[in-house]
């Protein structure tokens, strides 16, 4: 089946709304990502492309960080008309799994955090990881969470601390979304407080 840009992208958007309004609750984009996969843009992971199709157009800027940056940038630009720019100017930063270690921390550091007058003109970082789940490695607190939520992000990057530093001066900050190979999405708005659960031996 082909991706229906009206109805399928609406359903993806609603899942992102739910996931962002209730951080820790994963959104399942499997069905919609399958449609994208069938259309074949093999360099760009289906779930990342799906998010781009849902949110990007000529009004926004983006940066892809990946070994296949050139191809993926071209695909996204051709499909959405969004403008590729450098990381510090990008509205959306897409970090793929083949990006070198440290790329995520670097992107968090230089991504635009908005201004006190316009905290909404800040970056959203979308990261491809091998797995996100509700295993209790990260404890989440904040708006959208009744008491505590748990999440797990399988990645080599140590991003929790740098995200915390970036978001320290609320309302300035960045939004993050993690998508895994099974098209599960974890959304972490700047208001979510994360502490790492450490196993004490």
């Amino acid at each position: 089946m082909k991706l229906d840009i009206v109805h399928d992208l609406q359903s993806v958007y609603r899942k992102i709304v739910d996931a962002s309004a209730r951080p820790g609750q994963l959104a399942d984009l499997t069905k919609d990502a399958c449609f994208v996969k069938e259309e074949g843009n093999h360099d760009c992971p289906a779930s990342i492309l799906l998010l781009a199709l849902t949110l990007f157009d000529q009004e926004i800027t983006f940066k892809v960080i990946s070994e296949k940056e050139e191809n993926i940038t071209k695909t996204i630009n051709q499909l959405t008309y969004a403008k590729p720019v450098e990381t510090e100017d990008a509205d959306y930063i897409l970090i793929l799994q083949d990006a070198e270690v440290g790329a995520l921390n670097n992107a968090i550091e230089i991504a635009k955090p908005g201004t006190l007058k316009n905290p909404h003109s800040s970056a959203t970082i979308i990261v491809e990881v091998s797995e996100v789940s509700d295993e209790p490695s990260l404890r989440l607190k904040g708006p959208g969470i009744q008491a505590i939520e748990f999440a797990h992000v399988e990645t080599n990057e140590k991003w929790v601390e740098s995200r915390q530093m970036k978001n320290i001066e609320y309302p300035l900050g960045i939004e993050m979304m993690f998508v895994d190979h099974q098209a599960q999405l974890l959304s972490l708005p700047r208001t979510t407080q994360i502490t790492e659960n450490r196993v004490i031996v």
Binding site: V17, P171, P189
Partner: peptide
């Protein structure tokens, strides 16, 4: 729709702004 959707997601991320 996309433009409203992007604004809505930022609104959810910054409650009350």
């Amino acid at each position: 729709k996309r433009e409203i959707r992007r604004a809505t997601l930022k609104a959810i991320a910054i409650p009350g702004y």
